[in-house]
Amino acid sequence: MGLCFSRTSVRKKKPAKPRLTNNQSVGSGGSKRWSKSRKERFDDVELQDQAVTAAANILLKQQYGVAFDRSSSLRFPNSNGHSRKNQGLPRSSSSRARSLTDPLLQPHQLVVSQDTKLEDLETTHFVLVHGGGFGAWCWYKTIALLEESGFKVTAIDLTGSGINSFDTNKILSLSHYTKPLADFLENLNEGEKVILVGHDFGGACVSFAMELFPSRIAKAIFVAAAMLISGQSTLDMFSQKDVSNDLMRQAQIFRYANGNKQPPTSIDLDKSLLGELLFNQSPAKDVALASVSMRPIPFSPVLEKLSLTEANHGSVRRFYIQTPEDNAIPIQLQEDMISRSPPEQVFRLKGADHSPFFSRPQTLHKQLVEIAKLA
Protein backbone atom coordinates (compact mmCIF):
# COMPACT_ATOMS: atom_id res chain seq x y z
CA MET A 1 0.00 0.00 0.00
CA GLY A 2 0.95 3.66 -0.18
CA LEU A 3 3.21 4.56 2.71
CA CYS A 4 3.68 7.90 4.46
CA PHE A 5 6.39 7.89 7.10
CA SER A 6 8.07 10.52 9.22
CA ARG A 7 9.12 10.69 12.84
CA THR A 8 6.28 13.06 13.54
CA SER A 9 3.71 10.73 12.03
CA VAL A 10 4.68 7.44 13.67
CA ARG A 11 2.14 5.46 15.61
CA LYS A 12 3.32 2.60 17.66
CA LYS A 13 0.80 0.04 18.83
CA LYS A 14 -2.23 2.28 19.19
CA PRO A 15 -3.72 4.59 16.58
CA ALA A 16 -2.93 8.20 17.42
CA LYS A 17 -2.65 11.57 15.70
CA PRO A 18 1.13 11.47 14.99
CA ARG A 19 2.01 10.92 11.65
CA LEU A 20 -4.58 4.60 -22.15
CA THR A 21 -5.87 2.84 -24.15
CA ASN A 22 -9.64 2.31 -24.13
CA ASN A 23 -10.76 -1.12 -22.98
CA GLN A 24 -11.39 -3.57 -25.77
CA SER A 25 -13.53 -6.67 -25.60
CA VAL A 26 -11.72 -9.96 -25.14
CA GLY A 27 -12.89 -12.63 -27.49
CA SER A 28 -15.60 -11.54 -29.89
CA GLY A 29 -16.17 -14.96 -31.35
CA GLY A 30 -16.34 -17.30 -28.42
CA SER A 31 -16.84 -21.06 -28.53
CA LYS A 32 -19.68 -22.85 -30.26
CA ARG A 33 -19.55 -25.46 -27.55
CA TRP A 34 -21.27 -23.06 -25.17
CA SER A 35 -25.01 -23.46 -25.71
CA LYS A 36 -27.49 -20.68 -24.96
CA SER A 37 -28.72 -22.47 -21.85
CA ARG A 38 -25.14 -22.82 -20.66
CA LYS A 39 -24.62 -19.07 -20.97
CA GLU A 40 -27.77 -18.35 -19.04
CA ARG A 41 -26.66 -20.66 -16.22
CA PHE A 42 -23.17 -19.19 -15.99
CA ASP A 43 -23.67 -16.67 -13.19
CA ASP A 44 -21.92 -15.33 -10.11
CA VAL A 45 -22.74 -18.47 -8.14
CA GLU A 46 -20.70 -20.67 -10.45
CA LEU A 47 -17.89 -18.12 -10.52
CA GLN A 48 -17.87 -18.06 -6.73
CA ASP A 49 -17.69 -21.86 -6.59
CA GLN A 50 -14.76 -21.89 -8.99
CA ALA A 51 -13.06 -19.19 -6.95
CA VAL A 52 -13.45 -21.12 -3.72
CA THR A 53 -11.96 -24.19 -5.41
CA ALA A 54 -9.00 -22.16 -6.66
CA ALA A 55 -8.40 -20.60 -3.24
CA ALA A 56 -8.52 -24.02 -1.59
CA ASN A 57 -6.01 -25.33 -4.12
CA ILE A 58 -3.52 -22.58 -3.30
CA LEU A 59 -3.52 -23.51 0.37
CA LEU A 60 -3.59 -27.29 -0.11
CA LYS A 61 -0.87 -27.33 -2.77
CA GLN A 62 1.45 -25.11 -0.74
CA GLN A 63 0.87 -26.83 2.60
CA TYR A 64 0.30 -30.46 1.62
CA GLY A 65 1.21 -30.82 -2.04
CA VAL A 66 -2.27 -32.00 -3.00
CA ALA A 67 -5.17 -30.44 -4.85
CA PHE A 68 -8.81 -30.11 -3.90
CA ASP A 69 -10.45 -32.06 -6.74
CA ARG A 70 -13.98 -30.76 -6.39
CA SER A 71 -14.49 -30.62 -10.15
CA SER A 72 -11.67 -31.24 -12.57
CA SER A 73 -13.67 -29.57 -15.34
CA LEU A 74 -13.14 -26.22 -13.66
CA ARG A 75 -9.36 -26.43 -13.74
CA PHE A 76 -8.17 -28.61 -16.60
CA PRO A 77 -8.95 -27.37 -20.15
CA ASN A 78 -9.34 -29.74 -23.06
CA SER A 79 -7.25 -29.63 -26.20
CA ASN A 80 -9.28 -26.75 -27.61
CA GLY A 81 -8.47 -24.52 -24.64
CA HIS A 82 -12.04 -24.62 -23.25
CA SER A 83 -13.08 -26.22 -19.99
CA ARG A 84 -15.24 -29.32 -20.12
CA LYS A 85 -18.84 -28.79 -19.09
CA ASN A 86 -19.51 -29.27 -15.44
CA GLN A 87 -22.62 -31.22 -14.63
CA GLY A 88 -24.53 -30.80 -11.40
CA LEU A 89 -22.44 -28.08 -9.79
CA PRO A 90 -23.98 -27.30 -6.37
CA ARG A 91 -25.65 -23.92 -6.12
CA SER A 92 -25.12 -21.42 -3.35
CA SER A 93 -27.48 -18.84 -1.87
CA SER A 94 -24.64 -16.55 -0.77
CA SER A 95 -23.63 -14.98 -4.09
CA ARG A 96 -23.41 -11.20 -4.21
CA ALA A 97 -25.47 -9.03 -6.51
CA ARG A 98 -23.93 -8.27 -9.87
CA SER A 99 -22.27 -4.88 -10.17
CA LEU A 100 -23.51 -2.46 -12.80
CA THR A 101 -19.97 -1.27 -13.47
CA ASP A 102 -18.47 -4.77 -13.48
CA PRO A 103 -21.10 -6.71 -15.46
CA LEU A 104 -21.01 -10.46 -15.48
CA LEU A 105 -19.11 -11.66 -18.53
CA GLN A 106 -20.49 -14.52 -20.58
CA PRO A 107 -18.38 -17.66 -21.16
CA HIS A 108 -17.40 -16.65 -24.68
CA GLN A 109 -15.98 -13.42 -23.23
CA LEU A 110 -13.91 -15.28 -20.63
CA VAL A 111 -11.80 -17.19 -23.16
CA VAL A 112 -9.40 -16.08 -25.85
CA SER A 113 -11.21 -15.43 -29.15
CA GLN A 114 -11.26 -18.12 -31.82
CA ASP A 115 -8.74 -16.29 -33.99
CA THR A 116 -6.18 -16.28 -31.15
CA LYS A 117 -5.35 -19.77 -29.94
CA LEU A 118 -3.68 -20.28 -26.59
CA GLU A 119 -0.87 -22.25 -28.19
CA ASP A 120 -0.08 -19.26 -30.42
CA LEU A 121 0.64 -16.94 -27.47
CA GLU A 122 4.18 -16.32 -26.29
CA THR A 123 3.15 -17.65 -22.89
CA THR A 124 -0.07 -18.70 -21.17
CA HIS A 125 1.42 -18.68 -17.68
CA PHE A 126 0.48 -15.86 -15.31
CA VAL A 127 2.41 -15.33 -12.07
CA LEU A 128 0.51 -13.17 -9.58
CA VAL A 129 2.43 -11.11 -7.01
CA HIS A 130 0.42 -9.68 -4.12
CA GLY A 131 0.81 -6.28 -2.47
CA GLY A 132 2.04 -5.29 0.97
CA GLY A 133 0.15 -7.09 3.72
CA PHE A 134 -1.74 -9.28 1.24
CA GLY A 135 -0.98 -12.87 0.23
CA ALA A 136 -1.66 -15.28 -2.61
CA TRP A 137 -5.17 -15.67 -1.17
CA CYS A 138 -6.23 -12.24 -2.50
CA TRP A 139 -6.11 -13.48 -6.11
CA TYR A 140 -8.67 -16.27 -5.67
CA LYS A 141 -11.22 -14.80 -8.11
CA THR A 142 -8.56 -13.99 -10.69
CA ILE A 143 -7.11 -17.49 -10.45
CA ALA A 144 -10.52 -19.06 -11.07
CA LEU A 145 -11.26 -16.85 -14.08
CA LEU A 146 -7.84 -17.31 -15.71
CA GLU A 147 -7.87 -21.08 -15.24
CA GLU A 148 -11.40 -21.27 -16.63
CA SER A 149 -10.03 -19.48 -19.72
CA GLY A 150 -7.32 -22.10 -20.15
CA PHE A 151 -4.37 -20.21 -18.66
CA LYS A 152 -1.86 -21.56 -16.18
CA VAL A 153 -1.69 -19.51 -12.96
CA THR A 154 0.78 -19.35 -10.09
CA ALA A 155 0.12 -17.10 -7.10
CA ILE A 156 3.18 -16.41 -4.95
CA ASP A 157 3.32 -15.88 -1.19
CA LEU A 158 6.26 -13.54 -0.60
CA THR A 159 8.37 -13.94 2.54
CA GLY A 160 6.31 -13.31 5.68
CA SER A 161 3.08 -13.12 3.69
CA GLY A 162 0.04 -15.36 3.36
CA ILE A 163 0.94 -18.79 4.69
CA ASN A 164 4.68 -18.09 4.64
CA SER A 165 5.43 -18.20 8.36
CA PHE A 166 8.60 -16.08 8.43
CA ASP A 167 8.56 -13.23 10.98
CA THR A 168 7.82 -10.01 9.07
CA ASN A 169 9.90 -7.97 11.53
CA LYS A 170 13.03 -9.90 10.53
CA ILE A 171 12.87 -9.20 6.80
CA LEU A 172 15.76 -6.81 6.18
CA SER A 173 15.95 -6.50 2.39
CA LEU A 174 13.88 -6.56 -0.78
CA SER A 175 15.93 -9.56 -1.88
CA HIS A 176 14.81 -11.50 1.18
CA TYR A 177 11.20 -10.40 0.80
CA THR A 178 11.04 -11.44 -2.87
CA LYS A 179 12.99 -14.69 -2.49
CA PRO A 180 9.96 -16.96 -3.16
CA LEU A 181 9.39 -15.14 -6.47
CA ALA A 182 13.08 -15.24 -7.40
CA ASP A 183 13.27 -18.97 -6.58
CA PHE A 184 10.24 -19.63 -8.76
CA LEU A 185 11.64 -17.73 -11.75
CA GLU A 186 15.08 -19.28 -11.35
CA ASN A 187 13.57 -22.78 -11.47
CA LEU A 188 11.57 -22.27 -14.66
CA ASN A 189 12.43 -24.62 -17.51
CA GLU A 190 14.95 -23.39 -20.06
CA GLY A 191 13.24 -21.00 -22.48
CA GLU A 192 10.02 -20.80 -20.46
CA LYS A 193 8.52 -17.34 -19.94
CA VAL A 194 5.75 -15.96 -17.73
CA ILE A 195 3.61 -12.86 -17.42
CA LEU A 196 4.24 -11.17 -14.07
CA VAL A 197 1.33 -9.30 -12.48
CA GLY A 198 2.15 -7.07 -9.49
CA HIS A 199 -0.28 -5.29 -7.18
CA ASP A 200 0.55 -2.47 -4.78
CA PHE A 201 4.03 -2.99 -3.25
CA GLY A 202 4.20 -6.11 -5.41
CA GLY A 203 4.98 -3.75 -8.28
CA ALA A 204 8.39 -2.99 -6.73
CA CYS A 205 8.93 -6.74 -6.36
CA VAL A 206 8.08 -7.28 -10.04
CA SER A 207 10.57 -4.56 -11.06
CA PHE A 208 13.22 -6.19 -8.86
CA ALA A 209 12.57 -9.53 -10.58
CA MET A 210 12.65 -7.92 -14.05
CA GLU A 211 16.19 -6.75 -13.39
CA LEU A 212 17.29 -10.23 -12.29
CA PHE A 213 15.41 -12.43 -14.77
CA PRO A 214 14.52 -10.39 -17.88
CA SER A 215 14.76 -13.39 -20.23
CA ARG A 216 12.11 -15.28 -18.25
CA ILE A 217 9.49 -12.53 -18.18
CA ALA A 218 7.43 -11.94 -21.34
CA LYS A 219 5.41 -9.04 -19.93
CA ALA A 220 5.01 -7.21 -16.64
CA ILE A 221 1.60 -5.86 -15.61
CA PHE A 222 1.34 -3.30 -12.81
CA VAL A 223 -2.12 -3.25 -11.20
CA ALA A 224 -2.54 -0.22 -8.92
CA ALA A 225 1.11 -0.89 -8.21
CA ALA A 226 4.37 0.85 -7.35
CA MET A 227 6.13 1.27 -10.71
CA LEU A 228 9.50 2.72 -9.69
CA ILE A 229 12.40 4.24 -11.58
CA SER A 230 16.03 3.42 -10.87
CA GLY A 231 17.33 4.96 -7.65
CA GLN A 232 13.85 5.25 -6.19
CA SER A 233 12.36 3.41 -3.21
CA THR A 234 8.70 2.74 -2.57
CA LEU A 235 8.86 5.18 0.34
CA ASP A 236 10.34 7.85 -1.97
CA MET A 237 7.46 7.45 -4.35
CA PHE A 238 4.80 7.83 -1.65
CA SER A 239 6.62 10.74 0.00
CA GLN A 240 6.31 13.12 -2.94
CA LYS A 241 5.34 16.62 -1.84
CA ASP A 242 2.45 16.91 -4.28
CA VAL A 243 0.77 13.74 -3.02
CA SER A 244 -1.13 13.79 0.26
CA ASN A 245 -2.89 10.78 1.74
CA ASP A 246 -4.27 11.53 5.18
CA LEU A 247 -6.27 8.29 5.27
CA MET A 248 -3.11 6.24 4.82
CA ARG A 249 -1.38 8.17 7.60
CA GLN A 250 -4.30 7.51 9.93
CA ALA A 251 -4.34 3.79 9.10
CA GLN A 252 -0.61 3.11 9.58
CA ILE A 253 0.59 1.49 12.78
CA PHE A 254 4.38 1.15 13.01
CA ARG A 255 5.89 -1.81 14.92
CA TYR A 256 9.24 -1.67 16.71
CA ALA A 257 10.45 -5.23 17.27
CA ASN A 258 13.99 -3.98 18.05
CA GLY A 259 12.86 -1.37 20.57
CA ASN A 260 11.22 2.03 20.39
CA LYS A 261 14.55 3.83 19.87
CA GLN A 262 15.31 1.82 16.74
CA PRO A 263 13.73 2.24 13.27
CA PRO A 264 10.38 0.56 12.64
CA THR A 265 10.53 -3.09 11.61
CA SER A 266 7.07 -3.43 10.10
CA ILE A 267 3.85 -1.58 9.38
CA ASP A 268 0.38 -2.77 10.32
CA LEU A 269 -2.92 -1.25 9.27
CA ASP A 270 -5.80 -0.20 11.48
CA LYS A 271 -8.50 -2.83 10.85
CA SER A 272 -11.25 -0.26 11.34
CA LEU A 273 -9.95 1.72 8.33
CA LEU A 274 -9.22 -1.18 5.98
CA GLY A 275 -12.56 -1.00 4.21
CA GLU A 276 -12.31 2.69 3.39
CA LEU A 277 -8.63 2.57 2.49
CA LEU A 278 -8.30 -0.58 0.41
CA PHE A 279 -11.77 -1.93 -0.34
CA ASN A 280 -14.16 1.00 -0.74
CA GLN A 281 -15.82 -0.62 -3.78
CA SER A 282 -15.40 -4.27 -2.76
CA PRO A 283 -17.96 -6.81 -1.47
CA ALA A 284 -18.30 -7.04 2.31
CA LYS A 285 -17.37 -10.72 2.34
CA ASP A 286 -14.02 -9.96 0.69
CA VAL A 287 -13.33 -7.18 3.18
CA ALA A 288 -14.02 -9.70 5.95
CA LEU A 289 -11.62 -12.17 4.33
CA ALA A 290 -8.91 -9.53 4.15
CA SER A 291 -9.44 -8.37 7.72
CA VAL A 292 -8.53 -11.81 9.07
CA SER A 293 -5.85 -12.64 6.46
CA MET A 294 -3.67 -9.54 6.07
CA ARG A 295 -0.29 -9.43 7.77
CA PRO A 296 2.15 -6.61 8.61
CA ILE A 297 4.31 -5.10 5.85
CA PRO A 298 8.09 -5.40 6.34
CA PHE A 299 9.57 -1.92 6.62
CA SER A 300 13.16 -2.37 5.36
CA PRO A 301 12.16 -3.41 1.80
CA VAL A 302 9.99 -0.28 1.56
CA LEU A 303 13.12 1.84 2.17
CA GLU A 304 15.30 0.06 -0.38
CA LYS A 305 16.15 1.93 -3.57
CA LEU A 306 15.98 -0.10 -6.76
CA SER A 307 18.88 -0.33 -9.20
CA LEU A 308 17.33 -0.85 -12.63
CA THR A 309 19.10 -1.01 -15.98
CA GLU A 310 17.81 -0.50 -19.50
CA ALA A 311 19.48 -3.73 -20.62
CA ASN A 312 17.60 -5.88 -18.11
CA HIS A 313 14.56 -4.19 -16.58
CA GLY A 314 14.12 -1.99 -19.64
CA SER A 315 13.95 -4.96 -22.02
CA VAL A 316 10.70 -6.30 -20.54
CA ARG A 317 7.37 -5.05 -21.91
CA ARG A 318 5.42 -3.12 -19.23
CA PHE A 319 1.71 -2.39 -18.91
CA TYR A 320 -0.21 -0.45 -16.27
CA ILE A 321 -3.81 -0.94 -15.09
CA GLN A 322 -5.18 2.13 -13.30
CA THR A 323 -7.76 2.07 -10.49
CA PRO A 324 -9.61 5.42 -10.47
CA GLU A 325 -11.42 4.92 -7.13
CA ASP A 326 -8.21 4.03 -5.29
CA ASN A 327 -7.81 5.53 -1.80
CA ALA A 328 -4.41 3.92 -1.12
CA ILE A 329 -2.54 4.83 -4.31
CA PRO A 330 -4.54 7.82 -5.59
CA ILE A 331 -5.01 8.18 -9.33
CA GLN A 332 -2.83 11.31 -9.24
CA LEU A 333 0.10 9.23 -8.00
CA GLN A 334 -0.59 6.52 -10.58
CA GLU A 335 -0.53 9.15 -13.32
CA ASP A 336 2.76 10.52 -11.98
CA MET A 337 4.40 7.07 -12.06
CA ILE A 338 3.20 6.54 -15.61
CA SER A 339 4.53 9.91 -16.79
CA ARG A 340 7.94 9.33 -15.17
CA SER A 341 8.38 5.91 -16.74
CA PRO A 342 5.81 5.38 -19.52
CA PRO A 343 4.79 1.74 -20.07
CA GLU A 344 3.82 0.31 -23.44
CA GLN A 345 0.10 0.75 -22.77
CA VAL A 346 -2.14 2.03 -19.99
CA PHE A 347 -5.56 0.60 -19.18
CA ARG A 348 -8.15 2.16 -16.86
CA LEU A 349 -10.35 -0.15 -14.81
CA LYS A 350 -13.51 1.91 -14.35
CA GLY A 351 -14.97 1.92 -10.85
CA ALA A 352 -12.10 -0.08 -9.33
CA ASP A 353 -10.80 0.56 -5.83
CA HIS A 354 -7.28 -0.38 -4.67
CA SER A 355 -8.19 -4.08 -4.82
CA PRO A 356 -9.70 -4.71 -8.27
CA PHE A 357 -9.35 -8.48 -7.84
CA PHE A 358 -12.22 -8.05 -5.35
CA SER A 359 -14.11 -5.02 -6.67
CA ARG A 360 -13.89 -5.63 -10.45
CA PRO A 361 -12.71 -9.23 -10.95
CA GLN A 362 -14.36 -9.83 -14.34
CA THR A 363 -13.09 -6.66 -15.97
CA LEU A 364 -9.63 -7.11 -14.44
CA HIS A 365 -9.58 -10.60 -15.91
CA LYS A 366 -10.65 -9.21 -19.28
CA GLN A 367 -7.77 -6.75 -19.30
CA LEU A 368 -5.21 -9.36 -18.23
CA VAL A 369 -6.26 -11.64 -21.08
CA GLU A 370 -6.20 -8.73 -23.53
CA ILE A 371 -2.61 -7.93 -22.53
CA ALA A 372 -1.62 -11.59 -22.84
CA LYS A 373 -2.94 -11.53 -26.43
CA LEU A 374 -0.93 -8.46 -27.47
CA ALA A 375 1.76 -9.41 -29.98
Rank of each mutant, 00 (worst) to 15 (best):
S230R: 06
W137V: 08
A182K: 00
T124V: 14
D268F: 00
K152F: 06
L20D: 12
R84T: 11
S173A: 08
P180S: 06
E46I: 13
A218H: 12
D268V: 04
T265R: 01
L374M: 15
Q322A: 05
D286K: 07
P263N: 05
M210A: 04
D183M: 01
S79N: 13
R33A: 06
P18Q: 10
L277W: 00
Q106E: 03
K261Y: 10
V287E: 03
L185N: 09
E304S: 09
K179G: 01
L146G: 02
V206R: 01
A182E: 07
H365R: 14
S341C: 09
E122I: 02
H176A: 13
P356V: 02
Q334D: 09
V223Q: 01
G202C: 00
R360S: 04
S233F: 10
A209S: 15
N258F: 07
E147P: 01
F238C: 13
P180V: 07
S244F: 06
V316K: 07
R33Y: 13
T265V: 02
G351H: 13
M227A: 12
P343D: 12
I58K: 03
K39A: 00
Q367C: 06
S339I: 06
V112S: 11
A218I: 04
G27A: 11
P103E: 05
Q50P: 00
V66E: 09
V26T: 08
G198M: 03
P324Y: 02
T21R: 14
H365W: 11
Q232T: 05
F68T: 03
I297R: 01
S31L: 01
L110F: 05
V206I: 14
M1A: 08
S161M: 15
E147L: 05
Q250R: 14
F358N: 06
L368W: 09
H82W: 00
E335Y: 13
I58H: 02
L59T: 14
S35W: 12
S272N: 12
V287Y: 05
A16E: 15
S175P: 04
K350L: 12
C4T: 13
A56E: 10
I267A: 02
L235P: 04
I143S: 04
I321P: 00
